[in-house]
Every structure is written in C-alpha cells, then in structure tokens.
Design a protein around this nucleic acid. Structure first.
Lengths: 121, 121
DNA sequence: GCTTGACTTCGAGCGCGCTCGAAGTCCTAG
DNA sequence: CTAGGACTTCGAGCGCGCTCGAAGTCAAGC
C-alpha cells in the first residue's frame, strides 16, 4: 500500500499551510483529493507532485487563473497537449524576462552597495 | 536651464501611469515634486532617477513599505548610510534567492516542455 | 460516555499595489 | 468670453492570493 498524508503532513512536507492547500483545491488547482472514511483528505504522491508543480509556477509568477486553465486542460486529456505546451512556452518566456530584470537589478544594487561601502569606509 | 517633465511626459518616459506616479508620491516614495505656477508637477531628472530606482526595486519584489523606509533614511541624511547599506544587502540576498528559484523553475519547465514536445511529435 | 484535537465547510477579511473616477482648477487657443 | 484639455486632490474600488475564524463532525484514548 502506498503512503498517503493528512493535510497537516502534506502542508508540512510542502511548506505551506493547510489553509492554502484547501484554497488550491477550492480554486480548482487540485483534482478532488481522496478522503478517508471520516471525510478527511489523504494526499497521494500524485497530489503532492501537483502541489510541487503549482508551487514552482506560483513562485515564478504564474497567476492562479492560468494555473486553473492549465489544470483544466490536463483534465480534458490528450488532445490538449498542444495548448498546454504553448502555455508552458509562454510562461518560459515570462521567466526569462524576469530573470533578465533580476539580473539587471542585481547589477544596479551591487553598484549602489559598492558606492555605499566606499562612502562608509 | 534644465528640462523638466509634466506628469504625462514623466509617465510616458518611465512607462507607468500618472496615477502610479501620484500614488508613489502620496506613499512617501518621492520627495515633494516641484510644481509650476498652476500647481502642476514638473519632474526633474533627480525625480526620474528616483523613480527608476523605485521601479527596479519594485520589479525585484521590494515592498512599498521597505522602499518608504529606505527613502526616509535618505531624507535623514548621512548618518543613516550604514542602515541603508544593510537594507540593500538584505534585498540583494532576496534577489539572489529569487534568481535561484527562477532558475530552478526554468529547469523544471524546460524538462516538461521537452516531454510535451516528444509526446506531441 | 466524555474529552480532546485534528479535521471539515463556508464565508468573510486582509494586505498589497495599484487604478479609477468625480469634481474642481488652470492655461491656452479661438 | 468660452471651450477644451491637461492637470489637481481625494477617497473609493479592485484583483490577487491567501488567511482566518466560526461552527460543526469524527475517531481515538481514557
């Protein structure tokens, strides 16, 4: 038998709150999480993988709305892969742009820091 | 005489809205912008430089609250440079962290994209 | 049987960063 | 003198992504 996790365990595992896990489910980002006899959620490895994916996308700025769209496509099955690929490529371009922005800002910050260091010394 | 810009010009120049420029001023992020006889703002180069700085910091996720704190330190003068340096270093660490996150996500996205490409082909 | 505590659903609330719109002022051109 | 348009202030509103709390349920341990 495979191990499943309670919401508290899953939350600890993925370093987010049970509130957020329920919110993601409500928001349509997780397929109906299986329940035990008492109606409590039992997270499977697949659920946790999905959460990991969501976290990565969220951290890189993909909005919930688009994530829901993507997840809906996954639910609709095989013939949506082209559209999903397109979404991933779009997001990839976004990430590259933000990488550039961060690099640019890093340069500026470093410049300013070195000015301050000189001044303070 | 040095050129100054109206709010519309400044906004165009910095690619943000007049609303946002006023908001930044209200939020204490810009020193009182000089006005013409009619009470309308005239942005100096120094103002635009400040805006550029703010934009860079905002784009890299520094909250308005911290920016106000920083700007307040600038207003307080020379003996706050140590604290300002500290803030910049803190933010720098943040940026590095987010760079790592982005890189990590990029790898994951690329992996997923290549899976989709294989599947679609 | 009773308590405890981790869970459930639901709707409301919050902090952030704008974004907008109403109402008024002022300069310029005709 | 008038109309137009770009500005002003002010407060309210909005979209996002959680975050929280109330009220109820359920299973386990004593």
């Amino acid at each position: 038998m495979i191990a499943t996790l309670s919401i508290a365990e899953a939350a600890r595992d993925r370093r987010l709150s049970p509130h957020t896990l329920r919110y993601y489910e409500r928001a349509g980002l997780l397929d109906a999480v299986p329940r035990d006899r008492g109606g409590r959620r039992r997270y499977t490895e697949a659920d946790l993988d999905r959460v990991l994916f969501l976290q990565r996308m969220r951290r890189t700025g993909m909005p919930i709305r688009l994530l829901r769209e993507y997840v809906d496509l996954v639910r609709q099955g095989q013939d949506t892969t082209a559209r999903r690929l397109e979404m991933l490529e779009d997001h990839r371009a976004d990430v590259l742009l933000r990488l550039e922005e961060l690099q640019d800002a890093l340069t500026a910050i470093d410049h300013k820091i070195s000015l301050y260091r000189r001044e303070t010394a």
